[in-house]
Design a protein around this nucleic acid. Structure first.
Lengths: 216, 216
DNA sequence: AAATGTTTGTTTGCCCGTTCACAAACAGCG
DNA sequence: CGCTGTTTGTGAACGGGCAAACAAACATTT
């Protein structure tokens, strides 16, 4: 059913979570089968792209019929390693960090921030049911199974934090600090820079007067 | 000096804020000139790409010399319309919305959330110095100069909110709700979906064991 | 069981963005 | 002022992802 993982294009990878969410909702609504052109209206992605994406994971559908929703949910769930109870650590318990802890990916019960760290002694304790430890005790609290971190720290301290995380075995990092940083080759970093996003949004909005656009 | 705005590639647009931040820092550090290969080490973007990006705004540099930092700061500042005091409205004063208000793009003094809206009467008042009004009074509080909004509302209510915003003259929207939505043609929407970002990060991190990657 | 209509998976061509590589242009210096 | 070394800007090749189109495959109906 599922192809061996050859090379899946980065663009496709970024769309998997969208697909997964959509078919999950369909399943909850009691829909048992779906065609690519109908799904296209839901996720706003061309049906040709959808079929090409799906086909890169094997033959999930049937001609003249469509896709079984259950099949898709299972396939994407396996791909995304849902139900593997990913334990995520958070570094930086400021305004943004606190908001993330309160939210804690409620939508996905298997993605959980399990502990947080900060250098400010005033921040230590428990926030939204999650313990906050001193950043100095990072290595002592990490288990070998933890390899994912979210960073909500000031840009200035980011390089040092990333260095410490790598030393502690973290190899997947999502950060909100805009400072580009050199990292170890096995580390994957995803930057989310809110100010940049906003500025480039404003630029395109001003540029194309009269033509709207959805920017992904 | 500055080219008339022809077509600037979307990829380039997304990099402008990075460049702007980098050259601003250089200026603060007293650096007066910079070469493309040196800048490449700072922003982690190939020097060829940097030169091509810069050249799409005119001839900003001098052969055998490099770029005058002042020239770059001016050019990117003009491009991004810095100092135009963009007034931004926020809809949804939950955990994430509150964090955004506290932060309020402090790094950029000309990007400001000036007012917020929520449907919950308990949320009304003032948060971080910013007034929070009832969402029902949206149209009454907006001025014609306001055309940018940030959404931190539940997915379910997003379509209705976007519809109301468009009716009130908003045409640039940054949203944190993952639900894809149909919008008017003149509206530009940028989605930031934290769960999706995290899931695709985990997928690539698991996929490429032994090969790291910086995902932008 | 055959005929018909529908939908997938894939092929093909296209477009955008990145990278390479080099000629032209300029700074620095003797 | 001419010479040398350096760096830009860009033409050309490359690669990846996207949209269209179609043959093959399956469901459905008679």
């Amino acid at each position: 059913m599922l192809k061996a993982r050859e090379q899946v294009s980065k663009a496709t990878i970024r769309r998997i979570p969208l697909y997964y969410r959509a078919v999950q909702q369909l399943q909850q609504q009691g829909v048992s089968r779906i065609r690519s052109d109908k799904l296209s209206e839901i996720v706003h992605i061309p049906s040709a792209t959808i079929r090409r994406d799906f086909s890169s994971f094997g033959e999930l559908g049937k001609s003249g019929y469509g896709y079984e929703v259950t099949t898709l949910v299972d396939a994407f769930g396996k791909l995304l390693d849902v139900h593997s109870k990913e334990a995520i650590i958070l570094v930086g318990v400021g305004g943004l960090g606190t908001a993330l802890m309160q939210n804690n990916f409620r939508r996905n019960p298997d993605l959980n921030i399990t502990m947080a760290f900060d250098t400010d002694p005033a921040k230590l304790g428990v926030v939204a049911g999650i313990p906050v430890y001193s950043f100095a005790t990072l290595a002592a609290h990490l288990t070998p199974a933890m390899h994912t971190a979210i960073l909500a720290v000031p840009s200035a301290s980011q390089p040092a934090v990333i260095h410490a995380l790598e030393a502690a075995g973290i190899d997947a990092i999502l950060t909100f600090a805009p400072k580009p940083v050199a990292c170890a080759p096995q580390t994957t970093i995803r930057y989310i820079d809110l100010t940049s996003e906003l500025q480039s949004l404003l630029f395109t909005a001003h540029q194309k007067v009269g033509h709207g656009a959805i920017v992904r």
